[in-house]
Computed example of a mutant assay.
Amino acid sequence: MKAITFHRTGDPDVLAFDEVPELPVGPQDIRVTVTAAAVNPVDLKTRSGFLTLNLTYPSVPGWDVSGVVTETGSEVTRFTVGEQVIGMVAQPAHRYGTYAEQVTADARLFAHAPAGLPLQEAAALPLAGLTAVQTLAKLTLPAGAPVLVTGAAGAVGRIAVQLLLAAGHPVDALARTGDIASLRDLGVGTVHTRTEDLPDATHTAVVDTAGVAAAIRAVADAGQFVSIDDNPQPAPERGITPGKSYVDENGDQLQTLSDLVAAGRLTVPTGRRYPLADAARAHHDFSAGGLRGKVLLLP
């Protein structure tokens, strides 16, 4: 099958469109013909060597995938051939990621794709959605507790905002000026555009998706600060112990998110689309910044 590979870490030009052997389908696996794979910051950090990982070369990047089941293992009962699915495959833990024509992995990493959403667009959900859900799970929030989300218009931030609002929490945001209108349409209260304008000690928690350590100033005394970013975390202060959240593969949680999308209670915008063979260009454009909506690669 065709896939994007790299044989060493480096700039986007280390990515190549190559032929790689398909992996065998084990008893608990499914094989998925890929409709779309999404580009995530972790893909760039893996490819560049920013993350210290024990990769097997040639390595195939990618965590997010949507597609159609084309083969099932002998012990798989959750999916059948022809069904549309989405999945998050934590690439460093597996031989191949999702930048490929086929993805073969444990069926427990997948969920049925959301009904009513184009299958290409469904690839935007898994990593961002699971990151948001698992980050929020680290918080203990009283009913109606106010929360500030940094990077609120990004992939993870936007989902976190929607989940918090649905749970009855007032949400304020730190975001770019150009994102104010879209965030207010979601139901966000105050949208701050500069870190120095954040209020002091006003929110029960801060969910930091943008690596803004200084946002801890907005946390009330003895409140909570949790981040998903790889930047240095703020030092403890005022009874606040900052925490870090890492995402785990979880098909059951992903199914819950998929069902929310199907019900119209959660939206995940998509942006530019590139042919799979143009993954290097997609990485170049992504790293330049300024893109909105999840970038998709299409085999």
Rank of each mutant, 00 (worst) to 15 (best):
M1H: 10
M1W: 03
K2T: 04
A3N: 05
A3H: 01
F6S: 05
D11R: 14
D11M: 12
P12T: 04
P12K: 01
V20R: 03
V20G: 01
V34F: 02
T52P: 11
Y57T: 05
S59P: 05
V60F: 06
S66Y: 00
T70E: 03
E71T: 13
Q84H: 14
I86C: 01
G87K: 03
M88N: 04
R95C: 10
T98W: 05
Y99Q: 12
L109H: 06
P114T: 13
P118W: 02
L119S: 04
L125G: 01
K138E: 14
T140E: 09
L141Q: 00
V149M: 03
Q162Y: 04
G168W: 12
H169N: 07
L174S: 04
G178D: 14
L186C: 11
H203A: 09
T204P: 10
T204I: 09
G211C: 07
A213P: 02
I216K: 01
R217S: 09
G223S: 12
I228D: 06
N231D: 15
N231K: 15
Q233R: 14
G239S: 09
T241C: 10
G243T: 06
L254R: 02
L254H: 01
L257E: 00
A262L: 11
R273M: 13
Y274K: 07
D278C: 11
A280T: 05
A280I: 05
F286A: 08
A288S: 06
G289V: 01
G290H: 00
L298S: 08
